[in-house]
Design a protein around this nucleic acid. Structure first.
Lengths: 346, 346
DNA sequence: TACTAACACGCAAACGTTTTCGCTGAGAAT
DNA sequence: ATTCTCAGCGAAAACGTTTGCGTGTTAGTA
């Protein structure tokens, strides 16, 4: 009904100038106590709040961080957002989100929309399609216009910006080492196509770990899932591929999957084939989501501390935004991972 | 490095006035073809984009929607956000999110922060603490200042604003009817405390359904979980309470839970007690999340189409924002629910 | 009395747009 | 030669702030 009150209205009502009102509210000593009290009381009564947009225009700062992610219905990303939001809010920043839906075009459009003054910096994870196209012009243009970017999870090394990652190779090794220590002789890997950097790195870790233990890697034990399919069919195809994997290689006694969905699906398929977990097959997943925790048996998994990743990303971007010298060197922060042991391993 | 280019800079460079540049870029017929071409070419070359903040200030519209939710690491809420974002983007709006973490104070602070000019309207689901306190002054103040609100999921009827809900009573009946049809004689209910409106309504649906089938409701079959606890301990307590429920009432042959976590936990506890699902106990949950789909056995559940809820909420708020007459009547849209049958029922 | 200094406030610019209005000059009409 | 018309452009206000600087009033000092 009644619009928000402005400095101008207060000034008019109290018969002083706009500048005086502004100073009084900011408690400037330039203004007499008497006037200050009068103005402050009036402002409080009418619940005056400075207009953020006007402040943004004047200060050339919006105090808002843009977050671009491929997908929000996803435990890991929501954890990261939670972390970002937590730290950002503590520092007086807002968070505005853009979903790319794994699409290059939507990623570009979303970034352009936000880059036109709405935000002070980006935190983002690249869409699959962008990774596939390897077209990063929108990132470079954004950076060239003086807008800082922090990348996490799916990063691309060519881009000159801060990054927050985990050591995927090392994390995968932890998982595989655990399986080896638990006496697994034939460990299968369920991973993504190589253009997804995190999948590629985890695959590398799997191979290196096996090599270290002088176990020969068998190509047929590695299943690279092409996840361009969507939801419904997707699960069916996934199940079928895993089933084939198990049937063709009955010697499998351990599985390492690069995400929790692959892992629980593997458990499901295995059980349908009459295998017991963890007695016959031990399974380790990646990402400690709601599935891992509440599956039966509950899933041993590598947790990536998404909340922490978000917090660090937020603090990096805010530091960059508030830094006077934008030309300081780029940093890459590696967040620790941890193996959480549950019922799917012995 | 180089800041974004402005109208002023273009004007200076091309030796025309700012107004001329603005008009030329908006293709005003007031400007000669020759000048327009020159200016447009220059602007294109330098990748000119109008500054959103300046536009917001001038138009008194930000083209941004604020979304306040209690929690983002939650399948249903992410589905809703996805729906909101999808429709909002299609209409040229951005989405800015605020998390209340189920806290009253954070809800108020977040709303005040966003209400100060950053957004044109709110879409929100109330925090538990707010529902408990029943203090809605921040909502009323926001509405009084002419900022529209659309509530979803956890709504409060006293507030005069648009709402998007599901028919919780009816949905609960669907679930219970199914159990009755499947020959369950002693159906337990696992629900929340009554101050959570959706929990209360689903409880009501449970009771009404039983009454209709002339089954006497037994108070000891109703478990009201006090979910003020957090994460870790929470699950333990939940499991313990459910275990007690089963042990005290061995006659239970059906369970209706008001969310998927309660449902899968019930399945887990039941199995640990040697009960088979669905042979001995049939279970139906609420919300079709990742847990329902990938649990074993997969969970029969009531889906609430969160994506649809988000889309409708977004279209309602945008309609209100762009409406000339803010005084049109408040609407309540009821979104359909559906029972998805999976393996946890016969 | 005259000068100075401090105090308390107003003025105006700036952030980047859009848009209304008015001005200028050139060609056409009288 | 004088007036009219109109195309083409510039000036300025407005959105709501903050802030440096200028200014008038008063009190204090010589």
């Amino acid at each position: 009904m009644k619009r928000k009150i402005t400095l101008k209205q207060i000034a008019k009502e109290l018969d002083v100038s706009i500048g005086t009102v502004s100073k009084a509210l900011r408690n400037s000593q330039e203004i007499s106590e008497e006037t200050k009290e009068k103005i402050q009381a009036f402002a409080k009564y009418y619940n005056y709040r400075p207009n953020n947009i006007a402040l943004s225009l004047k200060n050339r700062k919006t105090k808002t961080i843009g977050v671009i992610i491929p997908e929000i219905v996803h435990h890991f990303f929501t954890k990261v957002i939670q972390g970002i939001e937590h730290l950002a809010n503590k520092k007086g920043y807002n968070v505005i989100i853009g979903l790319s839906n794994e699409s290059f075009d939507k990623e570009v459009i979303n970034m352009e929309m936000l880059a036109s003054g709405s935000i002070d910096g980006f935190i983002m994870s690249i869409s699959k399609q962008t990774l596939l196209k390897q077209d990063y012009h929108h990132l470079n243009e954004t950076i060239n216009q003086g807008m800082p970017i922090v990348m996490f999870d799916r990063v691309v090394s060519e881009i000159r910006c801060d990054k927050v990652i985990i050591d995927d190779v090392e994390a995968a090794k932890k998982a595989v080492n655990k399986l080896v220590a638990n006496n697994c002789k034939h460990i299968a890997l369920i991973t993504t196509m190589d253009y997804i950097s995190v999948g590629r790195l985890r695959t590398q870790g799997y191979i290196e770990a096996l090599n270290k233990h002088e176990i020969t890697t068998e190509a047929e034990l590695i299943l690279k899932v092409d996840d361009k399919l969507v939801s419904e069919d997707y699960i069916d195809v996934l199940e079928k591929e895993i089933k084939t994997l198990f049937l063709m290689n009955p010697q499998i006694d351990g599985v390492f999957a690069v995400n929790e969905l692959y892992a629980v699906t593997a458990m499901k398929v295995a059980r349908n084939l009459g295998k017991r977990i963890p007695e016959d097959i031990q399974v380790i997943g990646f990402t400690d989501g709601v599935l891992s925790r509440h599956a039966t048996p509950s899933l041993t998994t590598v947790t990536q501390y998404g909340h922490k990743i978000g917090e660090v990303a937020a603090s990096l971007i805010i530091e960059k935004i508030e830094s006077e010298s934008p030309e300081d060197p780029v940093r890459t922060v590696v967040i620790e991972t941890e193996l959480i042991e549950r019922e799917s391993t012995k």
